[in-house]
Simulated assay, not measured.
Amino acid sequence: MYKLYLADCAEHTKICLRERFYRHIFNTHFNLSFHTPKKDHCVTCTAYEIANAETRVTLQENYDRHIAFKNRARQEKNSDKIESVKL
């Protein structure tokens, strides 16, 4: 966000604040903070997790397919890592 702020200041020929002060204002005046999420969540998994029992029934098939695809992709990634070490 700070990079966007710098670009906006440059576009409108404004004086930019230092990143430290920018963060201070964001954290204190807006009660927001910056952090890197520990784990990203996709829309499919999140929708299934927050759905009630009735809705989960309709989402179940799509969710199962999604999990199978995710597991297959993880297996492929691991096998690619093993192959790259062998070379």
Results as ranks from 00 to 15, higher is better:
residue 6 L to N: 03
residue 62 N to M: 07
residue 18 R to W: 04
residue 70 K to S: 05
residue 73 A to W: 01
residue 51 A to P: 13
residue 48 Y to A: 04
residue 42 C to Q: 05
residue 67 I to V: 15
residue 61 E to K: 12
residue 55 T to Y: 01
residue 10 A to S: 09
residue 32 L to I: 02
residue 75 Q to I: 06
residue 86 K to Q: 03
residue 65 R to E: 03
residue 39 K to F: 13
residue 46 T to Q: 08
residue 17 L to T: 11
residue 42 C to V: 06
residue 10 A to P: 01
residue 26 F to P: 00
residue 61 E to N: 07
residue 65 R to W: 02
residue 57 V to F: 07
residue 28 T to I: 11
residue 20 R to F: 06
residue 60 Q to L: 11
residue 12 H to K: 15
residue 33 S to E: 12
residue 23 R to G: 03
residue 28 T to K: 15
residue 51 A to S: 07
residue 84 S to R: 15
residue 19 E to P: 11
residue 20 R to G: 11
residue 19 E to R: 15
residue 56 R to P: 04
residue 76 E to F: 08
residue 75 Q to R: 12
residue 20 R to A: 10
residue 84 S to W: 08
residue 6 L to G: 00
residue 86 K to Y: 11
residue 62 N to Y: 09
residue 63 Y to V: 00
residue 66 H to Y: 07
residue 68 A to V: 02
residue 45 C to P: 11
residue 40 D to I: 10
residue 72 R to H: 05
residue 27 N to K: 14
residue 18 R to M: 06
residue 39 K to V: 04
residue 45 C to M: 01
residue 2 Y to E: 03
residue 59 L to H: 11
residue 35 H to V: 04
residue 87 L to W: 13
residue 37 P to F: 03
residue 35 H to F: 15
residue 76 E to R: 14
residue 59 L to Q: 06
residue 47 A to F: 09
residue 15 I to R: 15
residue 87 L to F: 07
residue 33 S to I: 06
residue 68 A to I: 04
residue 36 T to V: 12
residue 38 K to L: 10
residue 78 N to P: 00
residue 76 E to P: 04
residue 10 A to L: 01
residue 21 F to V: 13
residue 51 A to I: 06
residue 4 L to K: 07
residue 33 S to P: 02
residue 80 D to P: 00
residue 13 T to W: 00
residue 80 D to K: 14
residue 71 N to Q: 08
residue 37 P to W: 05
residue 45 C to V: 03
residue 62 N to R: 15
residue 33 S to W: 10
residue 64 D to Y: 07
residue 67 I to S: 03
residue 30 F to R: 09
residue 70 K to P: 00
residue 68 A to G: 02
residue 3 K to W: 04
residue 29 H to I: 04
residue 73 A to L: 09
residue 36 T to F: 12
residue 46 T to N: 08
residue 44 T to W: 00
residue 79 S to F: 09
residue 52 N to W: 00
residue 10 A to T: 05
residue 29 H to F: 12
residue 43 V to T: 14
residue 38 K to Q: 12
residue 75 Q to H: 03
residue 16 C to R: 12
residue 48 Y to K: 08
residue 1 M to D: 11
residue 16 C to N: 11
residue 17 L to Y: 06
residue 20 R to I: 08
residue 7 A to G: 02
residue 22 Y to A: 05
residue 22 Y to M: 02
residue 57 V to E: 13
residue 5 Y to D: 00
